[in-house]
Amino acid sequence: MIAVELRKLFRRPRTWAIIAVLNALPVLVAVLLVLTDLAPRPGEGPPFLSAVLTNGALYPLAALAIVLPLFLPIAVAVVAGDSVAGEAQAGTLRYLLARPAGRTRLLVAKLVAVLAFVLVTVVVVAAVGYLVGTTLFEARPGAGTSVSGTSLTAEELAVRTVLAVGYVGVSMLGVAAFALFFSTLTDSPLGATMGALAVLVTSSLLFTLDAASPIAPYLPTRYWLAFVDLFRDPILWRDITRGLALQAVYVGVLLAAAWANFTTKDVTS
């Protein structure tokens, strides 16, 4: 059943269209940077964007930082929100459930497909970012400077980049879990997607308010940018471990709720 869901997801032109659109923004930003040679001022703009002017090998990180606040979560919410509600809206859900595999297995298969989409999307953004960065900017793939001003070897840079890609992928699992849960509540994929995005907008807004600081450590978007901490020296694990734990809690609770709802709901379409 998992293989079926994966094939279905990645054979859809819509899936690849989403990934292509997602990559368009970092490419546009890179072209504008090359044409104008104007880096963001300190304290402004996404992380690592200033640094790519001197080392294009860092562009995968800048590309992830560009899509992370909005485009990437929207893409994940669209795909995850469609996973169950899309079947219900198309009238195919009850046929899927007619198979002897059971609802829990179907939910797991949908979940794995969404996880695969998240992983592929993040890796493609990083890979396209590397190609664009090393093509358009002066690249120094053999070395780099950490955020703390120390030198990083090529191996250290590569390992930390892989860890950052993995961390961003895990950060998106919370979005996927929200959208998948909402997808089991409604027959409207748009409703499920908008529900997940409403949670993220609320989280991002609350994070900027001092009055909400007591609940800030529990907001789903709180630690998304902690992948930057992988490039400090020594690595600052504090927010990274908290981010991983927070995503694990959200994913665990929301998947349990999705399971409790989906395995007992009346499916009529």
Partner: peptide
């Protein structure tokens, strides 16, 4: 002492003769 910001950091390194201040986003020491 490193002042941590979401997109960078400013590190203040004290030694016997003074301080180095590293600003990542300005690439300035």
């Amino acid at each position: 002492v490193d002042v941590i910001t979401p997109a960078g950091e400013t590190g203040i390194h004290r030694d016997a003769r003074g301080t180095w201040t590293w600003e990542y986003e300005r690439a300035t020491a």
